[in-house]
């Protein structure tokens, strides 16, 4: 039982980490809460469903295409909605409300186009899990754990050593100072939306494979992704990933005592607790985070 919950927690954590890391990349350079980030994953999942199950395009084309579409989707949202708002010097709260509007628009658009019922993507048969010390794990779940691990090593190297990664951290750390050294911060913000949304696209694919697809999943993903980011420290990429695993484990061990319906509420209770006690998260630096 313990091992099973541990495995479930790690898999849930991996998926949350895919949302929270992208969210964190967007947040650090843009300094506002992009709540529609979960919807990017929903749009990606439905795009995959449409191209694979609807049009019958093989997976080696649809998978990269889905990630591309997710990146494009994030870029367009930033270009069409957030950028004009930012040009008017609107506060981050307005951007947050706008992003909730976008999220509700996307979720309902997906419901309108594909129906409210749950969609199942049958690319790989779900099959019986492999038994491992009394716990079950399916091949897809193993794949998720490995893919996510590779991605994070890649992300870490990117942010630490690549030019763009360094510039992004510079903009995150001090946008004004970055500007004076000739960095085009709008271009960097575009890039963080593209990269963050591409990761959300990957999350959409993996969720479509592991769970089912439904219109409201973006909202739930965002609650968990955001909570994970706050737990770890929104401005810290490794922090947001650690936070995701903490949340995945707490949720899965939590339903030992609580009815499973409370699963999403656990995330919010944890969120409230962290906002009150340690708003900068585990790894964040306190720069007046409550402001």
């Amino acid at each position: 039982m313990f091992l099973q919950l541990l495995i479930n927690g790690l898999i849930a954590g991996s998926i949350y980490a895919l949302i929270s890391s992208g969210f964190s990349i967007i947040y650090t350079t843009n300094k506002f809460v992009h709540f529609a980030h979960g919807s990017t994953a929903t749009v990606a999942a439905y795009f995959l469903y449409w191209t694979f199950s609807g049009l019958g395009i093989p997976i080696y084309i649809t998978f990269p295409l889905t990630i591309f579409v997710a990146a494009l989707f994030g870029f367009l949202i930033h270009l069409v909605i957030y950028l004009p708002l930012k040009k008017r010097k609107t506060s981050s709260v307005i951007l947050l409300i706008a992003s909730i509007g976008i999220m509700i628009f996307c979720d309902n658009l997906m419901q309108l186009l594909f129906g409210a019922n749950v969609k199942i993507l049958s690319i790989f048969p779900h099959g019986r899990g492999i038994e491992f010390l009394g716990a079950y794990i399916t091949p897809i779940q193993i794949a998720i754990l490995i893919i996510v691990l590779i991605l994070f090593v890649g992300l870490w190297t990117f942010s630490k050593y690549s030019r763009l990664g360094k510039i992004m951290r510079a903009v995150a750390d001090n946008p004004e100072l970055a500007k004076t050294t000739g960095i085009n911060s709008v271009r960097i913000q575009h890039w963080s939306f593209v990269i963050g949304s591409a990761i959300a696209g990957l999350a959409g694919i993996l969720i479509a494979l592991e769970h089912n697809i439904e219109p409201s999943m973006g909202t739930h993903l965002m609650i968990q992704g955001f909570t994970a980011a706050v737990i770890g420290g929104v401005t810290s990429l490794p922090g947001s990933i650690v936070g995701a695993y903490v949340l995945g484990l707490v949720e899965n061990f939590g339903i030992w005592w609580l009815p499973s319906g409370y699963k999403s509420a656990i995330a919010f209770v944890l969120l409230l607790a962290f906002l009150l006690v340690r708003p900068q998260g585990i790894f964040g630096i306190n720069k007046g985070a409550r402001e």
């Binding site: 947050l96 609650i223 919010f268 209770v269 906002l275 985070a289």
Partner: peptide, 19 residues
């Protein structure tokens, strides 16, 4: 809490009540 954090904490409250 202020600003973003207040907004999200209240959103969280709404969700907990719903749950």
């Amino acid at each position: 809490l202020k600003g973003d954090y207040l907004a999200l904490a209240t959103l969280g409250f709404g969700f907990v009540v719903y749950a």
